Computed example of a mutant assay.
Amino acid sequence: MSTAPRFDIDVAAFWNDPYPALAQMRKEAPIAFVPQLGSTLLCSRDDIFVSEKKIDIFSSDQPGGLMNRLMGQNMMRKDGDAHMAERNIFFPAVSPKAVRSRWIAQFQAHADRIIGALDPAAPVDLMRDFALPFSAECLKSITGLTNMRFQDMNAWSQGMIDGIANYIGDGAVEARCHAATAGIDAAIDDMLPVVRQAPDHSLLSVMVEAGMPMGSVRANIKLAISGGQNEPRDAIAGTVWALLTHPDQLALIRDGRVPWLQAFEEYARWISPIGMSPRRVAKPWTIRDVAFEPDERVFLMFGSANRDERYFENADRFDLRRDASKSVAFGAGPHFCAGAWASRAMIADVALPALFSRLSNLRIVDGEPIRIGGWAFRGLLNLPVTWDR
């Protein structure tokens, strides 16, 4: 165990709102051992930005980690050449060029169809009725698992997200994760003959065509689903909520002073849909006066780094005028999110402008509280809205 000072948390309170505890840690113990999570947390942006690049010390290769055990070892849980070999196969399917030439038109078609089916006369939860199906339909296109229902894509993604954040060892959560991975394996099995007979540009197709071992194909498809559904889903609903509750910020976009991309980037900094990334200490190391021992677990707290007062003035405020370029919402090292460009296109190029242009006077329905939760992965749980016909 590291020599970091002990910092106790209330797990339920931390799930509901981690920011007060993280701010206290940044002030009093920016490297702290949290026994309730069984891990040492790095909370300052400087420590995280530097440590994430030291893959020989803070390794993503975690043989006994939850992700490896529940989803298989994907490229996110490999370092160095092993990581790059799989990333180089995976990346062309989600590169900026691929997003522009292949995916953005499909994203727009999904958005137009789903928005066209919404009716303000009925109760509309923007999370459930738009963000969830839109993110899932886009992800079906990218992964090549077009045989899945969007409801299954979302449920299985959530099952895996919950499973790999299950640091308290809840058996029911682990069982749901196993059910999710089994469903994804079945969907892959159904689509393998299709992409072998007619290769396309999907993730499944490019990995199979490149000869990647099937265990790695399955693990990397699960990786794409676990982050590729939840993060865009949560960021779409969350950014809409942030803009509707900060009308002065929305006015900056409507007046053309700030682009939609800045709204997404600032929301991703402010809330950090992916709030943490785990690492395994590979060899003895010391940061200032804190010593680490091999094989202990470290959490890089992106959600804390993105509210570090040394980089972000009034960090708890949603402010589209700020420079969010120091944010580590997508990571900062060799494991920088490979799907970042697809996510930006889905949210900033398609979803946000489509919603605000087509749903006149979009607004939150009074009376039903907005719920938000999570710390390893954080997002809205509902967003009741209406608009003018």
Rank of each mutant, 00 (worst) to 15 (best):
W270A: 14
R307S: 11
V290W: 06
D295N: 06
D295I: 05
A282V: 12
P278S: 09
D308I: 08
G303D: 08
P273D: 11
Y311N: 14
G275F: 06
R269H: 10
E293S: 14
A305N: 03
S272P: 01
R297G: 06
T286P: 04
I271F: 13
E309F: 07
L300R: 07
P294W: 02
K283Q: 06
P278R: 10
K283R: 03
S277K: 10
M276Y: 08
Y267W: 11
P284A: 12
G303P: 10
A291K: 10
S304R: 05
M301H: 08
V290N: 00
A268R: 12
F299A: 15
R288M: 06
R307G: 10
R310H: 12
A282R: 01
I274S: 14
F302L: 14
T286Y: 03
A268C: 15
I287T: 05
E309P: 10
E293T: 14
W270M: 11
K283L: 01
T286S: 10
R310Y: 07
M276Q: 08
R269V: 13
V281F: 00
D308W: 02
F299W: 09
T286N: 14
Y311E: 06
D308K: 04
I287G: 00
W285H: 10
F302E: 08
Y267G: 11
R297N: 11
P278V: 12
R307T: 13
D295C: 01
W270D: 13
P284D: 06
A291W: 00
W270R: 15
V298K: 03
E309L: 11
E296Q: 13
G275P: 08
Y311C: 12
V290E: 00
W270H: 06
I271Y: 05
A268V: 11
N306K: 09
N306P: 07
E309C: 12
S304M: 09
A282T: 06
S277R: 13
S277V: 14
V290A: 01
G275N: 05
V298N: 04
F292N: 01
R279V: 00
E296H: 04
E296P: 07
Y267F: 15
E293G: 06
P284M: 02
I274K: 06
R269N: 12
F299D: 15
V298Q: 04
I271Q: 13
R280P: 00
T286F: 01
W285P: 00
R269L: 08
G275Y: 04
Y311W: 13
I287R: 09
F302W: 15
R288D: 14
P284F: 03
G303N: 12
N306A: 13
V281W: 00
E296W: 02
G303S: 10
M301C: 11
E296F: 03
A268N: 08
R269D: 06
D308V: 15
G275L: 08
E296V: 05
E309R: 12
